[in-house]
Design a protein around this nucleic acid. Sequence first.
DNA 1: ATGTCGGATCATATCCGA
Length: 258
Amino acid sequence: MRVATWNINGMRARLDYLLIWLGDRRPDLVALQELKLEDERFPHAELEAAGYHAVSHGQKAWNGVAVLAREPLTVEQSGLPGQEELGARLITAAAGDLRLTSLYCPNGKHTGHEDYPRKLAWFDSLADHLEATAAAGTAAVVAGDFNICPTPLDSWNEKALTGSIFHTGEERQRFRRLLDLGLTDAWRSLHPDRQAFSWWDYRAGGFHRDQGLRIDFLLASPSVADRLRGAEIDRDYRKKKEGLIASDHAPVWIDLTE
DNA sequence: ATGTCGGATCATATCCGA
């Protein structure tokens, strides 16, 4: 079984590319972020034709999250309680015996910006929510674009960037609290010493210089972590393909035993 | 090089956010 996450940076702009990737990688469950469209405009018909059910929590122009699955989906949570004013950034859905949460965490802009303390508070609410809704033994994956670089190894230039946005102790403490809830950073657990990135800035030739960050994660509950057999960052899908422009994020996926 | 994207708008050029 394959579970993936991908910040697609615009569903309308990325649909054709997304369909290519779904056909190539055949994931069973997918968490998508940055849909940038309202739920009424979600392309259910195109995804159903490709073999996927979908549930979305979107809004006009910005943010927006979805879960795709080959099996029928049940929505368990739409929106992070108490943090709705920061945008459509969380959806949890169950498919079969697995619960998948898709997250688009706030960016924060920079540490002097008013959005930065809001980002920290959002993560506090997220941890509270996950703690309150965790069910012992439930197979769950919390996946998405976390907009935090959890360790120096996850940054292309920790030396210059330490203390700046994505690289602060306060953000890393928030990420650590998620792991302390019993969740495992699946890709990192299989590749403890590897440096690889999941996002590269469109600007400044970031991708070609490999100036990236690892900020997209699949966090596995204990029963899912026990089933983990593989984890990859799909760097090839950050490249232009068949004339189509890529997202600034690469897909990340994990393979689980049945 | 703040060099690129996606989306919105008092739209065909300019802004905002990332």
